[in-house]
Amino acid sequence: MQLVIDGIPCTAESGETILQVARRNRIDIPTLCHHDALEGVGACRLCVVAVRAHAEAVDAQVVASCMYAVKDGLQVDTATPEVRRLRQTVLDLLAARCPDAPEIQALRERMGGDAIDYAPAVDGSKCIMCYRCVRACEAIGCNAIAAVNRGPQKEIAPPFFDATQRCIGCGTCAAICPTGHIAVTETPQYREIWSQRFAMAQCAGCGAPFMTEATREHLAGLGKLKPDYFTHCAACRQRDAAARFVRVGT
């Protein structure tokens, strides 16, 4: 099907979102909660765009481009004054919530609009509630964290705000967090995340810690891999493979 984004005719498949089509055509739409690999949640609303049903339509509707499935003949504007203002408001609100998140402040400056300073959160965290960590954890199959409580009190936490068997300490949540909210403490012996301590597996070759014991068990438990993969770090495995290579080759 055909649609027009910012005056540029674009071709799209049924089921694609406006965001997908726009990015494929190198049209920039800022996002925070969106991640290509994760199911859309439409939480941050930074990616709003104005849409009209067809070229002659007068009434524009503001929609989240990450969730809105394209329709034939759709007219999309990604940077009308109204859209810019809404994005500015979203960032202003997040900046008030997360005064210590430089990523948000930087984005806000980049927008360069008419910013409003809202009352800063008293106990401001860096969490913008984008659910990336929750969705990534779900993708891995752990489901160790979720958004608990509701409204302004909503936060991401493991069940009972406590240690849980479901968490394997893999650190994916921290790695995928856009603002660095999730704290991770690393030592050669353990990794601490969500206030839970995980023993590190030491490489049988070089002794370096390379993943948590729980992650090792989780990956083995998936049944996709042989358990003996997990005794050595990647570098040592490559070294061993080189040795085998030489022996086979000679």
Binding site: V41, R45, V90, A96, M129, G151, P152, K154
Partner: peptide
Amino acid sequence: LQSESCGRCVPCREGVAQ
């Protein structure tokens, strides 16, 4: 509405609180 917001999207969660 602030206490009844589900808390999922920014405008409602943060905006209504502000």
